[in-house]
Design a binder for these strands. Structure first.
Lengths: 219, 219
DNA sequence: AACAGTTGCTTTGTTAACAGTTGATCTTAC
DNA sequence: GTAAGATCAACTGTTAACAAAGCAACTGTT
């Protein structure tokens, strides 16, 4: 059981820092805090009702995730993405996820992995009739699952470090356009490729999926 | 010119946070703070002569880099790497650097890139007669350069997030063993592969280089 | 009008102190 | 002897206040 899923009762005692982190991440990736916005510590800490010290810790983490960047004199502002940077992000993402696919292909027994992936695809199918928000979450969960199932903690961590940037890319390109990448059929093909156990094929499918996705976003 | 290289005069006014960050990173990657060490904020802040607030900011960053991990109740300790995790790290590293090599192959004019890479190799050659420390630095600088030359900021950032873990791997495996991976000839082959412009070849060379490196470390 | 000096405001860097929680040790009643 | 309870020490979470650095507007002088 992961740490996030054990909310089990109402007793999710998360620190103010974590709450602030989540709130800021959400505000940035939804565009509530548009790119370029200068994040003034005193203002922000007042808005969030936390002290500057606590806020600063959360901001360091966001900075490391690439959601905010430091300007002159330590000033932090919401990162601005251009088309080229989105392509860059998706190139790295493709490299990570194709590694994931190759590692999964190398497993002797892929039955559990395939079951989990198909379940993630089903979740996308269910979300297809829901709002855009849900579709995005289901899509990201699929790809996150791909990385998690490898058991490679470093790979998962690297992917998650990129997740914020991916969400910003979706935001930048426009949600309506982004959901065109969240076709159930195409994700099913990824699972099928892994099912064959052919690492070269799985690699190809992921790379082409990502290239297509990036093209749709920046087109 | 990068921000680090502009020390230009004696006026490198870096914040206490950055100094603490650098000091801790070094202490961990050199083994001065061995894996598993519990990092008590009050002790550490006293040792470094900085306040806990400032220290905590630096620790968040190290946490994100994967050098320290959180245990129960927010306790932070130096991350422990086992052989499997080293293999994992090098698998991700290989994925990133092979992306770098492929991107460099795709450039129309690779003359500047090749010049920079050959210079980095020369630096390794010069360091070969120096201490182990210098050889490690020259090796990492070569690989970092590989990523930097792509112009893909996200790629460089992801690689640098992994750099601490790579240094810990070297430390864990033993420096004497690690330097076996820093052969000038083998790095020259990487540059040669990129010079051909054959992305497939460059990919192969990097992957085999990294697989060999990981094998040497965990053997 | 151009310029140097000054003054005050904004914002980040840094610190010390307070609060709350966990775990260990000691005590005491059965 | 042992289990419930009290007390204490060791930490981390959080906050408010102080310090310093840049920046812009103003002012007086030439």
């Amino acid at each position: 059981m992961t740490a996030e899923s054990m909310s089990l009762l109402g007793l999710e005692k998360t620190s103010l820092r974590q709450q602030a982190l989540a709130a800021l991440r959400r505000a940035i990736t939804t565009g509530e805090l548009p790119p370029g916005t200068h994040l003034v510590e005193t203002e922000l800490s007042e808005t969030l009702r936390i002290s500057r010290g606590t806020l600063r810790e959360a901001m360091r983490q966001l900075q490391q995730e690439g959601l905010i960047s430091a300007g002159a004199r330590g000033r932090l502002s919401v990162r601005h993405l251009d088309s080229q940077e989105i392509r860059n992000i998706f190139a790295v993402r493709a490299a990570l996820e194709s590694l994931a696919a190759r590692e999964l292909c190398a497993l002797a027994d892929r039955s559990e992995v395939l079951a989990a992936l198909r379940e993630a695809v089903n979740e996308m199918q269910r979300a297809a009739d829901s709002g855009l928000e849900e579709r995005i979450e289901a899509d990201l969960e699929f790809h996150r699952t791909l990385c998690r199932l490898t058991g490679n903690a470093t790979l998962l961590h690297s992917w998650q470090s990129l997740e914020g940037s991916i969400r910003m890319s979706i935001m930048f390109a426009g949600v309506e356009r982004a959901v065109r990448n969240m076709d159930v059929q195409r994700h099913s093909e990824i699972v099928d490729a892994i099912a064959t156990g052919d690492a070269g094929l799985a690699n190809e499918v992921i790379m082409s999926h990502m290239e297509g996705a990036a093209t749709v976003l920046v087109a």
